[in-house]
Design a protein around this nucleic acid. Structure first.
Lengths: 195, 195
DNA sequence: CATCTAACTGAACGTTTGTTCATTTGGAAA
DNA sequence: TTTCCAAATGAACAAACGTTCAGTTAGATG
């Protein structure tokens, strides 16, 4: 029963992406079949190929889209001022951006190994750009004398791991709201690099 | 050609586990087939079923084994003394235990969703035990007045995420040895919870 | 009203999947 | 030397996989 009411392409398209994201986050890329995605969207498997050339592209588009959104949002943030202020801004930005996107975080961190080599390289480069933004702040803090980390690269990875780990256990309906979480994490981040 | 030289069961058995661990860490549980594992071990797929009842048990045994090893090692560590000393001991223990086991860490953190519900519950309970060991230390530090974290549970998750993240990027052949890494991370952990 | 076409169906394709099992093998035990 | 059996083979199973495509449908267009 094609096209029950009006044109569906602008409805089905996003629904394919949303459903794929949710299912892949829940079960993993390799464990989710095209038929499973189609079934939840409410179409037959063949119809998916109106919206993606293949399964691999579906994954890549999700991950690339997430990273593009992240880098765009970071650029918009316009962090400036002294290193401590910028670090606080980065910490809050990271939490506010990632907390409402737990599915994207899950997929982006778990499915890297399921990307074709060329796609992996693209996503990895964007991830590195994001990490570098934090490392710049840490280096500035060192220069200002307000931070003391013996290795800015390691400190960068440590902080990002700490912040991103949040997305793996935080549930919005828990006892702590986003503001409370933000405050706790900023406290720990600030102290961890303090001079 | 069965049994080319002597009994193989005590050789093939461990090789199945080792190979499965390595392949699953690299490609993910769902993406690795029994035939792929068998091929690397050097047997036919059917022979694997002399060593595991099914694929799910293979994954569960790997993950449960890792957690049992972890909790046993932690118990042996016998952390005692004041909270700061115990926190240092825990940090060093975590790093020294996990760094040489990057495949196990990968599998244990990525494949939780591929465990059958009953198996998931078992592994999750052990993970929780491990987290509680750290939280006990943080609470003791609060009581002593040497730590200041507004929420010991959140601080626990933050620290474990930071430490475990290490296993995801650290390469033994990099510019930093395990001792150097240990010192950097202990510095950050110590400061992050300092009063 | 007739025509067109985007959107979708449903069947089919060749592979690959986890798992089973009758059969074969060859070192160890008698 | 003969017997025995743990350990492995290799073929088979139904089911599920990603992907393709000729055909169908129904709203939009003329």
């Amino acid at each position: 029963m094609a096209r029950k009411q009006g044109s569906h392409s602008d409805i089905t398209g996003p629904r394919v992406q949303d459903t794929a994201l949710r299912l892949i986050a829940r079960h993993g890329f390799a464990a989710v079949s095209m038929r499973q995605i189609a079934s939840e969207v409410g179409v037959q498997a063949g119809a998916l190929y109106n919206y993606t050339p293949d399964k691999q592209s579906l994954l890549f588009d999700l991950m690339q889209g997430h990273m593009v959104d992240l880098l765009d949002a970071l650029r918009t943030e316009e962090l400036h001022g002294d290193a401590l202020t910028r670090l606080k801004g980065f910490t809050q930005f990271h939490i506010r951006f990632h907390l409402p996107r737990s599915d994207q975080v899950f997929v982006s961190y778990m499915e890297l190994r399921n990307l074709a080599p060329k796609n992996f390289a693209i996503v990895e480069r964007m991830r590195r750009n994001y990490e570098d933004a934090l490392e710049d702040i840490l280096r500035a803090g060192e220069a200002e004398g307000v931070f003391s980390v013996s290795d800015t690269r390691v400190a960068t990875m440590a902080i990002i791991a700490m912040l991103t780990g949040l997305s793996h256990w935080y549930r919005g309906d828990g006892r702590l709201g986003m503001d409370a979480i933000e405050s706790i994490y900023w406290d720990m981040v600030r102290k961890s690099v303090a001079a």
